[in-house]
Design a protein around this nucleic acid. Structure first.
Lengths: 255, 255
DNA sequence: AGTAGCAAGCTGGTCAGACCAATTTCCTTG
DNA sequence: CAAGGAAATTGGTCTGACCAGCTTGCTACT
């Protein structure tokens, strides 16, 4: 068990806990901490910066390092935030993601119908309109689509759920941008999606939980089905292209 | 908009992308990168260490920095991993978490019943036995409980779901350790939970999807209900204690 | 006395150069 | 041609220094 790399971040955490430092309190100065831990300032700073980037500390030049004050729901957001940074993963997570959304968003819409405030309803209406208005650019459509579903989650007043859904949307966007964009090019698709969104919206506005659940479930099943169609079409085209390549060259894949 | 703090991490990422570096490839040496970015090595190292701690890079002393090779499902795990580090958050996320689990785990169990391999079934059986065997220590019980539910998610063969559930379990453990442990002290609770777990297990072993869904839903609703009971009992006790305090002293809360 | 203003000192942010330890590279040698 | 070892390379750490904001506290003016 060679564990000579001492865990400075843990030591800093322990120090915060042992001295009873709460949100907003100032830590000892870097130079003092370095002495206390028997390590150089540069070595200490590398670990402090990691705690800063993880949101556990905030730094003020000339002021000091402070224990970060967590906003409501902030820990969860921080936990899921790195999801946004895995842009290059061609792996097909989208199937798994849609399966989860299919489980989640029925209840989410039902809860939103029961709990949405007037502000929630106004925001949600604007989000639905935004999707309808963005019918030109596929990327804008995808964004507006995700925003609407996130809006429903917000209207459900479940802090954790909002963060989970946000993470799922990011993962979705990262893993199938090509297929997803092609989805919006299917004939009549945008109008159909818009109509389904409005069905969900209307049920939420009217406070009809079961109608909202059914509309959301139907919408998710529909999108999943069409995504599968698009994927199959793509696979067929890839097979054809590969067959054509085999006609011309004999090079194997670069696995 | 004063944004003089240049984004070194982004620059490193861009460099990886622009040079077409894939998983396992080596980055230029620190000294070279520092020159290229026009920054000191120590400044550069602080950002490199952050990328390392985020799992995007791995370092080998004497060897160099390498683009991390993501295991299957690893990006999602990395995205949700920081959740484990928010131990001190007295905020009551547990209600939100249980609501999400209530939405998820019915379908999860149903999918597990349809997709579980023989290995999955064997593992799940052992996990259920482990819960039954851990009846002494509340912490061990909570761990075994979470492990069983994670096992069900694994049997459902949805990579993203496993990571989401893992994150939710961590958040759950962090936000209600006190109440949760008290839950296991209710009379007959352990046997009841064990029986409900076995109901889920049996349905999965038998491949009966709808039975599994119903058992899981009932189980989650049951646990949520009992947690709410425990919380109410606690609140009542707190109120009594506060009333008693007001009799003896007049000090306000330390908000 | 009270307060506005300034100056000295802390504190974080960055830099430069050095040394150590592990790894890689390449040349020597059998 | 292969095995061994020396030299160069590279990450990990340390020291000491300087700059730019922030804090503190003293001074001087009202």
């Amino acid at each position: 068990m060679s564990e000579d790399r001492l865990d400075l971040q843990g030591k800093i955490r322990d120090l915060i806990a042992s001295r009873g430092l709460g949100a907003g309190d100032r830590l000892p100065a870097e130079r003092a901490l370095a002495v206390e831990f028997g390590v150089s300032r540069s070595r200490l700073r590398e670990d402090i910066q990691q705690l800063v980037s993880q949101g556990h500390l905030v730094s003020r030049r000339g002021g000091g390092h402070f224990v970060a004050v967590p906003e409501p729901g902030e820990p969860v957001r921080a936990a899921l935030l790195p999801l946004a940074s895995l842009a290059r993963s061609e792996a097909g997570y989208w199937h798994d993601v849609m399966e989860i959304r299919l489980s989640l968003e029925g209840d989410t819409a039902a809860h939103a119908a029961l709990r949405a405030s007037e502000e929630d309803k106004a925001r949600l209406t604007k989000l639905a309109d935004a999707f309808h208005a963005a019918s030109a650019d596929p990327a804008a459509l995808a964004h507006a689509d995700a925003a609407f579903h996130l809006g429903v989650a917000q209207a459900a007043h479940n802090v954790v759920l909002v963060q989970v859904m946000d993470g799922l949307q990011s993962l979705l966007e990262a893993s199938i941008s090509e297929s997803l964009l092609r989805l919006y090019h299917l004939p009549g698709m945008i109008d159909e999606l818009d109509a389904q969104h409005r069905a969900i919206l209307d049920a939420i506005l009217g406070g009809e939980a079961e109608t909202a659940r059914a509309a959301a479930t139907r919408h998710l099943a529909f999108v999943t089905d069409r995504l599968r169609m698009v994927e199959e079409t793509e696979a067929r085209q890839r097979r054809a292209a590969r067959a054509h390549l085999h006609m011309t060259a004999g090079k194997g894949p670069s696995a």
